[in-house]
Simulated assay, not measured.
Amino acid sequence: MSGLRYVYAICRPFDAALQAQVTGVDGVPPGQLAHHGLIAVVGTVREEDFAEESLRRHLEDLDWLSATARAHQAVIDALTAVTTPLPLRLATVFRDDAGVRAMMEAREDSFRRTLDRLDGRVEWGVKIHADAEATRPAVEPQKAASGRDYLRQRRQRSRAHEEMWESAEKFARRLHDMLCGQAEDARLHAPQNSALSRESGRNVLNAAYLVPRSDSEAFAELVERAKGEEPGLRVELTGPWAAYSFAGLETDGGDAADGATGEAGL
């Protein structure tokens, strides 16, 4: 199949086989491209889909974007099971293998430093949501007999809401501090918009933690014990993932195909 070279990740050589059923973008199983002791995990994609103008249109097509992201992530997940990958940006494409090697050569030192830092480590995600039901008063307010009563009831409801959020944020800070003690590094991400994430309730913690594989079971157990500890709060654990939040790659241009992405950043 002729086309552009799609790059999923950079990693060190590994012997273990990826899952046989893993296919990448466009249904093409991932392969390996070696250069100076590093491996680029690559596939081949249709130029008519990934050249600059076509890609720009596709990125506005949520169905296409979702399918491409799932295929990309499936390869990264398979790699994470057998090695420490350095994931590259979705739709990182180059004209040919020479372009991929030129990118690897230009960024070799950065790739090696990052792989050394992340070796044997994975990312775990922890989110805390305050359930929408928890924001409602436990007892329905009585019909106000006067304007004074109405204002008093409003103040009481407002205080109850404030106390609930303060309690949720206090719990989130306490859990985050405890998890930081079990992780080598942590990142606090912006709270998710519930309308976009389709998660119910308010997101009060959205964090990522860098954890050695050998400590992952203990880390996950710590999060599991926190579930149900605070009424009205939902604790969610995801992972283990490739260490997206800790890759720290700079974004710069590569030998891209006619201006297509060609950026080995996150």
Rank of each mutant, 00 (worst) to 15 (best):
G181N: 03
R121E: 04
L88G: 04
L18E: 01
L88K: 04
R154K: 14
V28P: 02
G43P: 00
A51Q: 13
A102L: 08
G181A: 09
E133P: 06
R113F: 09
C11Y: 01
P30Q: 01
A130N: 05
E224T: 02
Q21F: 10
N193D: 13
A207L: 00
R174L: 10
R198L: 11
R136D: 12
D61M: 08
R159I: 12
R117T: 07
G232L: 07
R152F: 06
R198H: 10
A183M: 03
P85S: 13
G125M: 09
P240D: 04
K127P: 15
N193S: 08
L59A: 01
K170G: 15
D49C: 04
H36W: 14
L65K: 05
A16P: 02
L86C: 02
R157A: 14
K143P: 08
S245H: 05
R107I: 08
D149F: 05
A91Q: 04
Q21E: 14
G239A: 08
T238E: 08
Y244C: 01
E47N: 09
G201V: 06
A220K: 03
Q32H: 15
L90G: 04
R12N: 06
D131G: 13
W241Q: 02
F171V: 00
G37E: 13
K143A: 14
A208N: 01
W64N: 02
S110W: 07
Y244W: 07
V28N: 12
E199A: 15
K143T: 14
S110F: 13
D97T: 05
V75I: 03
F14I: 05
A256C: 13
A138P: 00
E105Y: 11
A69E: 01
E230S: 10
Y6Q: 01
E108R: 06
E47D: 11
L151S: 11
R107P: 10
E53K: 15
D116A: 09
E53S: 15
G254F: 00
R136G: 08
E48L: 08
Q32A: 15
V139A: 12
I39H: 03
D15A: 04
A186L: 03
A71T: 01
V211E: 00
A207I: 04
N206I: 05
D149R: 12
R213Q: 14
L88A: 09
I76V: 07
L266M: 08
L266G: 03
V93G: 00
